[in-house]
Simulated scan of single mutants.
Amino acid sequence: MTDDRRTGTTTGSTREWRVEEGWGVVDSPDTPGGCWVHFSQIEMAGYRALAPGQVVRLEWEAPGQDGYDFRAVTVVP
């Protein structure tokens, strides 16, 4: 059995963050259409959330989630 998942690491900018739902989208050249991010993937102390426009380093995988081709594995603000 083969694993068709693609992965990578890149820098991106937070497009949106849905505080109430705990997820958002990060845009980068390596994740066209956006990368879905869940708060649990953010590596930081305290309350984990991102702000629109915030630059982050992320490890991603495809296939994605919830209509996005990519999803974050780890996010470092």
Rank of each mutant, 00 (worst) to 15 (best):
G24N: 10
E20M: 10
H38L: 01
V75P: 04
C35E: 02
V75W: 03
I42F: 05
V55H: 13
P77Q: 07
W17R: 07
R48N: 05
A72R: 03
D3E: 14
E16G: 00
R5Y: 04
H38A: 03
G34H: 05
E61R: 14
T10M: 12
Q54E: 12
W36R: 04
V73A: 08
T14R: 10
S40Y: 09
L58R: 13
W36A: 02
P77H: 07
T11Y: 13
T7K: 15
E61F: 06
L50Q: 05
Q65M: 13
V26H: 10
R57P: 04
C35D: 02
R71I: 03
V73D: 04
W60S: 04
L50W: 03
L58Y: 12
Y47V: 09
D27H: 07
F39M: 09
P32Y: 08
I42Q: 07
G8A: 12
F39D: 03
S13Q: 14
C35V: 01
S13P: 00
D4V: 10
E21M: 11
Q41C: 06
D69N: 11
T2Y: 14
V37R: 07
E59W: 08
D3P: 08
E21G: 08
D3G: 08
G46C: 05
S28C: 10
A45E: 15
R5N: 07
S28F: 08
W17S: 00
